[in-house]
């Protein structure tokens, strides 16, 4: 688990995709790759109302990442200092192994460079005291970026519930 945490308060998200676009434009990506994505779930009938949920899907920066294990070149790696999982484009040969290995489809394919790209928690921005691009542009302020211990209590609970459904 990385030392950072990106939390989405789904209650507030309106599915405007500003985060998705900001992410792409920061990484200067062509058509195709979406390092972060809003997955639209629904609409479902809840009681007598149709409800839609918007789930923000960047990379989970797993403790023990599949992509890193799969990558034969060492291009995909977990940063020692903060646990962020990211690609070194100089080493990447574009075998897409990481992409196929990730159970959540987080690493993406950049057809222009022939290399993998992914959410890297904008560590270059974070280093200079900024927030990740997606967080900065979110008009409803539903994205939070911080260290896990500072994520507000209820949100941690909500997150824990969400993760629990996963397994």
């Amino acid at each position: 688990m990385s030392q950072y945490f990106l939390f989405q308060d789904q209650k507030k998200c309106i599915g405007c995709m500003a985060c998705v676009v900001a992410c792409k434009s920061r990484q200067k990506l062509p058509r195709g790759p979406l390092p972060s994505l809003i997955v639209t779930v629904g609409p479902k009938w809840v009681g007598h109302l149709p409800r839609t949920a918007f789930t923000f899907m960047p990379c989970f920066h797993c403790e023990n990442p599949w992509c890193v294990a799969a990558c034969p070149t060492g291009a995909m790696f977990q940063r020692g200092e903060d646990g962020i999982v990211t690609v070194n484009p100089d080493l990447c040969v574009g075998c897409k192994t990481c992409i196929s290995a990730c159970p959540w489809g987080a690493p993406q394919w950049n057809p222009e460079t022939g290399k993998a790209v992914k959410c890297d928690y904008c560590h270059d921005r974070v280093k200079t005291g900024l927030e990740p691009a997606c967080v900065t542009v979110c008009p409803t302020r539903c994205l939070y970026f911080d260290t896990p211990d500072r994520i507000p209590e209820i949100r941690r609970e909500r997150y824990a519930r969400a993760r629990a459904q996963d397994f």
Binding site: K44, A162, Q165
Partner: peptide, 10 residues
Amino acid sequence: SGGRHAEITP
């Protein structure tokens, strides 16, 4: 996995 994380509540 996006679906699994979705929170659709009454």
